[in-house]
Amino acid sequence: MYEVLEDFAQENGLRQTSTSLKLLIGLSSILLCVSSPGPVAPLLVAASMSAVILALAKIPARFYARILLIPVSFAVMSIAVVLFITADGAVLIEVPGLPLTITTGGANLAVLLLARVFGGMCSLYFIALTTPMTEVFDILRRLRVPTVFIDLAMLTYRFIFILIEEAGQIYRSQVMRLGYGRFRESVQSFGMLSGALFLRTWESGEALVLAMDARCYDGRLGIPGDARPVSFLALAAALLYIGAVFGISLCTGGLVLV
């Protein structure tokens, strides 16, 4: 089973920091990475975010290194395609026997993409590892996202953890009974797992309806929000950081408006 990043979000060094401040830093770093015209700013974001995650949020380095590998397969495949289809500038390498060439333009674009993805993923991990989802719901509510959407998201969130547990149990018992021995069997077992999971899900959903009705559910879930004040110093530091990265991204590649 996957290790869910949310486990770390519940107990990390930055758990008590204001949620809106963390979201401000994380989201603006992502935007800066995506719109940066040169690879320097995204790499800077990646380095600073990783430093914050490891030093301030105290996420184990070994775990962090492992999750950094998750997007690699997609990155390698797509960046390879971009590398070969962009024929721009001088030819650097030619693959003998195949119509594949790597040019300077393609290589530059590939490096830029790699840096953006790396910076973006590190900022995303910063949000994922320091901010529990429950607190994001509170922010969404204050941003006046439709209630029905937030309620649906909260209920989905709750059920995800119950279902992951159940799926794990079914999977382990299937493995114990050699359910994944051959290819045919594994498709059969996986179908059985998904089917059983769906039916159990549905039943627990019906049970939840009963439980909520018994507690006078009227189509609205109330959760108390707790607002943590943002200290002036923290806000100033965050803005300074964002400004600095923005400045560097401007200096290293000119302004890109859209």
């Binding site: 209920l155 989905t156 119950i162 992951i164 799926a167 999971l197 769906f198 899900t201 959903g205």
Partner: peptide, 25 residues
């Protein structure tokens, strides 16, 4: 009213199903 919890479990089901690895040869 019972539609909301049922939609939520369907969403959670999609999440869990897509986080499981398919057997692949």
């Amino acid at each position: 009213r019972e539609a909301l919890p049922l939609l939520a479990v369907a969403g959670a089901f999609v999440f869990v199903l897509s986080s499981l690895k398919l057997p692949s040869f």
